[in-house]
Design a protein around this nucleic acid. Structure first.
Length: 418
DNA sequence: TGACGTCAAGATCCG
DNA sequence: CGGATCTTGACGTCA
């Protein structure tokens, strides 16, 4: 089993993607952004390798306008060396990568131009996965598309357009139940006809449930049968609802207790779980550690190094609870460890705790900083005390100081990114 | 016509 | 000028 995350990394430098607008999409711009993005991807792969993360979704934005006629570059040839170097790293680390064109790639659109664009987009995704030397276990996740007032006709359109795809694209396609049109039942029916593996998405299944009495574990079991030998392990999408607002919005972090309840109910644990969550890699590491019965205290101490200032900035007493918990190195309850961190972050903003944490961090950078940085820190912290400055401004300045002085221990602290 | 979702780029405003 | 904050873009569907 692997647990992974989508597209971007929090708390690690040189992993951010660049983009350009259509009006700026010159060959030179596309070329330089492509290179930036490939090097960012390489850093992400290195990060995943270091953190034992073996499931990852590559952003569709990796090649700017990858399926758009404005991009005339032969990027596969131009960047072949970098692409195959990244591919080798992915293979050596045993990472399974995938891609997922968004809700605007609609293969079954009745408008020819839009369906053609979808074909071009799927081609581009397959070309990219080919260029990094992955096999057919690296999938392209696709929704069925629109309904257009006639679901069975729209399913036929989907099937016809799917059959017409080139083989190198078709072998990578997997289909997913969506949040309003096609239920798990619908998608399985399509899978039966076209032999396409099915990704089950738990949150979509909640907002757009199938008829009948099957629960989500039944659907996962049914979907498992659609994954053949050349497709690799069954993969599902797992996310939790954001407590407030839109019911389809993803939560800021994975609640570990709720995840473990789900995980323990799975009939077959030999399954790949793609998390869809705002804090990305952080939730992936959390779930990987929580499901690893033999996780080392070293891994948890590494996590604590990431979270400690964040927890301190929310509550000194929760901070002390975790410190005490970690003293007994043979008996650390990983679920409780993450549970306290989650509870700390749900507390209302505690000005005293924020000031305490900011001054604590300031202690690491204050002696080597410039007078201007010192002045700015004092201005910001006084402003925060007087309620005229947002805590995020204070954090941003502290991060700038840590980056300038290259204090790695601080730079990677989750305090700055959540 | 605007809401939906995403997230960096671009624009604008402030000191 | 640097920083903070708001708006735009690129995609297609549906009410």
């Amino acid at each position: 089993m692997s647990i992974g995350y989508a597209c971007l990394v929090l708390g690690e430098g040189n992993t951010a993607f660049s983009r350009c607008l259509l009006k700026n999409a010159t060959d030179d711009n596309i070329r330089s952004i492509t290179l930036t993005n490939l090097l960012a991807l390489e850093n992400i792969i290195d990060y995943n390798t270091k953190n034992n993360i073996t499931l990852f979704r590559i952003s569709s934005d990796i090649i700017p306008f990858g399926s758009h006629p404005i991009n005339k570059l032969n990027w596969q040839a131009e960047f072949s060396e970098t692409l195959s170097r990244i591919g080798e790293k992915i293979k050596n680390a045993g990472i399974r990568v995938s891609m997922h064109p968004g809700q605007y790639t609609v293969l079954n659109s009745p408008i020819d131009k839009i369906a053609d664009n979808a074909v071009a987009e799927l081609n581009y995704h397959a070309l990219f996965l080919d260029a990094i030397l992955t096999d057919s276990k690296s999938k392209i996740v696709l929704h069925i598309g629109g309904v257009y007032g006639d679901k069975s006709k729209s399913i036929d359109t989907f099937l016809n357009n799917f059959y017409a795809l080139p083989e190198f694209v078709k072998k990578r396609i997997v289909i997913e139940n969506d949040d309003k049109n096609y239920t798990a039942y619908d998608v399985l029916k399509i899978s039966e006809m076209a032999k396409i593996p099915v990704i089950f998405d738990n949150l979509h299944n909640m907002s757009n449930p199938s008829e009948g009495s099957n629960n989500q574990y039944d659907w996962i079991e049914l979907c498992s049968k659609t994954w053949g030998k050349t497709d690799g392990k069954q993969k599902i999408h797992y996310s939790q609802q954001k407590p407030t607002g839109n019911k389809n919005a993803h939560s800021s972090t994975i609640n570990i207790r709720e995840f473990m309840d789900f995980y323990e109910e799975l009939n077959d644990k030999n399954i790949d779980i793609m998390l869809e969550v705002k804090d990305k890699n952080l939730s992936a590491i959390k779930c990987i550690n929580a499901t690893n019965n033999s996780v080392s205290i070293g891994e948890i101490e590494k996590e604590w190094a990431g979270y400690k200032y964040l927890v301190l900035s929310c509550s000194a007493s929760f901070y002390n609870d975790i410190r005490n918990m970690l003293k007994d190195k043979n008996n650390v309850d990983v679920i409780s460890f993450y549970g306290i961190i989650e509870r700390a972050m749900l507390l209302p903003e505690n000005i005293g705790a924020q000031i305490n944490a900011a001054e604590h961090i300031w202690g690491y950078v204050s002696t080597k900083c410039t007078p201007a940085d010192k002045k700015r820190f004092e201005k910001l912290i006084n402003g925060y005390k007087n309620n005229t400055v947002n805590v995020s401004s204070l954090k941003k300045h502290l991060l700038n100081c840590a980056i300038k002085q290259n204090v790695k221990y601080l730079k990677n602290s989750y305090y700055f990114y959540l």
